[in-house]
Design a protein around this nucleic acid. Structure first.
Length: 643
RNA sequence: GCCGAAGUAGCUCAGUGGUAGAGCAACUGAUUCGUAAUCAGUAGGCCGGGAGUUCGAAUCUCCCCUUCGGCACCA
């Protein structure tokens, strides 16, 4: 007897082992048809797998929670894709094929590259396999037999995976039609359940087991959904995301460009540079009030200093160097050694601590060519960097202050949704466990005052200390790690920084490496994507365009522009001989937040007609009121009104 | 760095071995107009770079550069 408890707490008794399908059938034919899997004591099982013990069971249908359904659906899609590939290209070896966010992939090993045409053929064959509605059958295999089986088939990767599975793990294979694959499962009952809402999206290389020393496999990505409607909605979301790509908007809005002669380094155009400068000025203002001092350190520094700091050994390959005066210099990849040099020019007292030293430090790093990505990953960038030299006791209060400052800044930029990750000690590290204990608890304690839940990023701390990572979420739900705070006991030691304590003895200061925006280039890119290029007034490179309707308005329009500029606004005057429709269109496409149209009426009445970006209508205001309103709205957050 | 794809006018793109094309932008002229494209004309190209095949190359082959999508990397 097997007693099955259903979600409504009713209990059904069965004579012997019973499958999820049997249970669904016993409840009703509708459910039997809709069932795709079963939850047994909370664990997801195949519908056909026999339950031989008393259990709490719930039947899973396509209406179950998204995560469960999509995971099943996409995992099946991966198997069906592998079956299609094996049918079309029998010599291909299969490796792994999981479900991922929004889709799935499968990695294949094959001598010839797949072509985009092959993708179409594979997708078509997948459709056929769905049509065949092949049942997916779970089989438990003997380990050695399974290894021999896959070796015999020439599936060496599969054999290797089994060999590496822990001896305790049950080896399960799933069979569908002529295709059999090692898999933990569970799966949908048959290939027909996948339906038609799937699509192969891209072809890419991927290293076997994610290790660049291994063979490069061919990865095919796809997406799968419950219904064609869901699929189309997803494809539409992708299109919309592409429209806000900062590289595309950078061109459209004339913000910056890249060219071959300086790969990975931006040429900032006037409008883009305006935006960049606003960020820099804003942060500078913030740091001033938060008690930081600003410095500037050399771009080009003798390699000797990098050897001392330890960077040469670890990252020398990624530093740009130049020879001069029979010495080797390196373009600085980071600012900390420079800041320590300034710290050391004076005999420091504990009374000088904490010393918060900030720099908009322009750094160069030789990033691998394949890593470059618009402004997001560049070879020349500027950090809103600072190092706080402090005592161990000051780690917690300084971290608390920093968290508050950072959250304030993110809020000003419209990022309310922030996550914090704590990255603790890596396996290879400098410093004693005692020191790490202290540093880790100092950081977590301080981070807790933010009230934000702290995620753990185990073993991902820097070799010199633990760190906090600050992640913001943009308008379309993507996460960006921008801010960071890292505790460093090693650099002060290596570069011999010290201060005189209350006891009259020399002590090592602790360094807190911290950045709020991270790289100004990258943060600019994030802002462009977050706002789709339609910036709030305080960030917009051109805040207002004053456009005339006919030439009769030129004189008054010039006066309006002058007054707006007088109030500190960034204004463009458009006196061109075009129709107002054309001007409105041009400036709207350029995403200027406010267009002021000037015609005879406004000139006669001393008014302006203001049209806001995104609105269809306009508002007629007295010139003075318009200037005041716009100037107030353009205020940089966190600063008092401009004089 | 690795795998795959791409690079043609300022921008978006067409052009598969036989005299380099379109739209928009630019420039010139006309038009003076009330909230998302006024009309006409003109000009604009080392077809990413180099080598090769060919009577002839944007087009075929090889090498390199850059970009795009991933992977690996990210102090």
């Amino acid at each position: 007897m097997v007693a099955i408890t259903l979600p409504d707490d009713s209990v059904r008794d069965f004579d012997g082992p019973v499958s999820g399908a049997d249970i669904a059938g016993a409840i009703g034919p509708g459910l039997a048809k809709a069932a795709i899997a079963v939850r047994v004591d909370g664990e997801l099982w195949d519908l056909s797998r026999a339950i031989d013990h008393d259990a709490a069971v719930s039947i899973v249908t396509m209406r179950d929670d998204d995560e469960t359904v999509f995971d099943l659906l996409r995992h099946d899609a991966a198997h069906i894709m592998a079956e299609a590939v094996k049918e079309l290209f029998p010599k291909t070896q299969v490796t792994i094929g999981p479900s991922i966010e929004n889709g799935f992939f499968y990695d294949f090993s094959r001598a010839e590259p797949f072509t985009p045409d092959d993708l179409e053929a594979i997708e078509a064959r997948m459709g056929e396999i769905v049509g065949r509605d092949e049942p997916l059958i779970r089989e438990v295999w003997d380990r050695d037999k399974a290894i021999a089986f896959f070796k015999d088939m020439g599936e060496h990767y599969k054999a290797e995976i089994i060999e590496d599975l822990p001896a305790t793990e049950e080896i399960t294979l799933y069979r569908q039609g002529g295709f059999i694959d090692l898999c933990r499962g569970p799966h949908l009952p048959s290939t027909g359940k996948l339906g038609s809402a799937f699509k192969l999206t891209k072809l890419a290389g991927a290293y076997w087991r994610g290790d660049s020393r291994n063979e490069m496999l061919q990865r095919i990505y796809g997406t799968a959904w419950r219904t064609p409607k869901e699929l189309n909605a997803y494809l539409h979301r992708i299109e919309e995301a592409e429209k806000r790509d900062h590289r595309r908007l950078g061109k459209q809005l004339d913000l910056f460009h890249f060219q071959e002669e300086a790969a990975g380094m931006a040429f900032w155009h006037p409008k883009g540079w305006t935006l960049y400068r606003i960020l820099e000025d804003y942060i500078r203002g913030r740091l001033d009030t938060a008690g930081y001092v600003e410095v500037k350190t050399p771009q080009l520094v003798d390699r000797k200093l990098w050897e001392k700091s330890g960077h040469w050994e670890k990252f020398g390959e990624h530093m740009y160097t130049t020879e001069s005066e029979e010495r080797t210099f390196a373009l600085k990849p980071m600012n900390c050694p420079g800041h320590v040099q300034i710290f050391k020019t004076d005999l420091r007292s504990y009374r000088d601590l904490p010393l918060r030293m900030a720099e908009f430090g322009g750094c160069h790093r030789y990033e691998p060519s394949g890593a470059l990505h618009g402004l997001m990953r560049v070879r020349a960038f500027t950090q809103d960097d600072a190092h706080i030299f402090c005592t161990r006791e000051q780690i917690t209060p300084e971290t608390e202050d920093f968290c508050r400052l950072l959250l304030d800044v993110y809020k000003d930029f419209g990022f309310e949704d922030v996550k914090i990750n704590f990255a603790d000690r890596p396996e290879v590290r400098a410093g004693t466990d005692d020191v790490w204990d202290q540093a880790e608890s100092a950081l977590t304690e301080a981070a807790e005052v933010t009230g934000i839940e702290i995620g753990l990023n185990p073993g991902e701390g820097a070799f010199y200390g633990p760190k906090l990572e600050f992640i913001l979420t943009d308008a379309i739900g993507r996460d960006w790690q921008c801010g960071t705070l890292q505790v460093d006991f090693v650099t002060p030691e290596r570069l011999d920084a010290n201060y005189i304590g209350e006891d009259g003895q020399r002590h090592r200061p602790v360094m807190l490496h911290r950045a709020i925006l991270g790289s100004l280039e990258r943060f600019t890119g994030i802002l462009i994507e977050h706002h789709s290029g339609a910036f709030p007034l305080w960030l917009a490179p051109i805040q207002v365009v004053v456009a005339t309707i006919t030439q009769d308005g030129d004189a008054y329009a010039t006066q309006v522009a002058k007054e707006l500029r007088g109030a500190g606004l960034r204004v463009e005057l458009d006196l061109t001989n075009e129709k107002i429709n054309y001007k409105v269109r041009e400036h709207s496409l350029a995403k200027v937040p406010a267009i002021i149209a000037i015609g005879q009426r406004e000139a006669d009445d001393g008014t302006v007609s203001v049209r806001r970006l995104g609105s269809k209508g306009q508002e007629v205001l007295a010139l003075r009121d318009a200037v005041d309103t716009l100037a107030a709205e353009a205020q940089i957050p966190g600063q008092s009104a401009a004089a």
